[in-house]
Design a protein around this nucleic acid. Sequence first.
DNA 1: TCACAAGTGGAGACCCCCGTCCACTTGAGG
DNA 2: CCTCAAGTGGACGGGGGTCTCCACTTGTGA
Lengths: 197, 197
Amino acid sequence: MRVDARENRARVLAVARELFAQRGLEVPMAAIARRAGVGVATLYRRFPTKEALVVEAFTEQFAVCQAVIEEALTDPDPWRGFRTVIEKVCLLQATDRGFTAAFVASFPDMHSEVRGRTWQAFTTLVERAKDSGQLRPDFSPHDLTLLLVANGGLAGMPVEVAVAASKRLVAYLLESFRSGTDALPPAVPLSLDLVLS
Amino acid sequence: MRVDARENRARVLAVARELFAQRGLEVPMAAIARRAGVGVATLYRRFPTKEALVVEAFTEQFAVCQAVIEEALTDPDPWRGFRTVIEKVCLLQATDRGFTAAFVASFPDMHSEVRGRTWQAFTTLVERAKDSGQLRPDFSPHDLTLLLVANGGLAGMPVEVAVAASKRLVAYLLESFRSGTDALPPAVPLSLDLVLS
DNA sequence: TCACAAGTGGAGACCCCCGTCCACTTGAGG
DNA sequence: CCTCAAGTGGACGGGGGTCTCCACTTGTGA
């Protein structure tokens, strides 16, 4: 690949990340191209479809999520690890407007292997927190998905507002997650294809 | 107005309500017209714009919301009134896919008088619940908006799933609302124009 | 230097949406 | 029955989106 092409590709990706975060996934390809100082054809040469660009633009954030979960596994305090995961991921989600949409859009492309490993890590995190007696026993790992989807509803607001609102929502929910007493309605396995449509 | 015209108008409204609930507000006007067995022009004769149709189609649901709140004010148990409002409104929202979008879309058209009255009613409901000692003192009426926006994030899933998920989310949050202890991040005044864009 | 493959940009094909226009149809009063 | 205003439907304009095609430019190895 020629060096100018490589530079263009990198600039397109950076611009895409920025615009997706600011305005969500509905930003037109032409806007990304214009902002990156290239033509539309250049975009489509590097990324055969818009979805491909989206996936590529957000793989970094997905990696961050995964790292957050696996780092939390090394925390000696199970509850702190659990809480940190939720806080960090929700903050990421509130900061980046396109995050949730990209997450569900990339569902078919994300190899079940990676998803499986992350899920497995979170599940053991949950188990540990339960064993330590700080997390309520009827908490389900699916509740993470529930929280993510609900928190994703805050997207579309100005970033500072979304962040503040998300923090309060997360604080409320974490308080409930911690050694609750009342009976809950059953957990709902929210696989991502359910969120899609 | 001629009787056939009146019938057509009613059929259009019924179809619009059904399709908006099933598929959200992004359903095309042409689809509504076709399903109602009329042409597009008939739609636009009765409702000058799509937004007008949306508002008209959802005024009933808005009235229900208002009635729910004002009925809760007559409940002798303040906490039960508070809880019922949240449960009923969230259930309505989870059942109808277009509800949230219609709510924010109708924001400019809803006379501030009506909104003000409903808001006032909910505020006194909150105050009563606090005075009875069952609702945590740092609960803000804006937390209702927060909950609604978060719960609105569940839209887009099959209805049964959305309802089940919403119930669990609401149960978690109600548990937190009830006489919590930990300090919370500050409340965020989520005026509807913030949700818009 | 130079030839050529790799790279590029913009026009435009194609599709979907909202809302309008206009020639045609129909119901109801005289 | 017959008139005509009210009602109707489909074609169409305008705008915006994704993605393609093609003539042109540019970096790079020989």
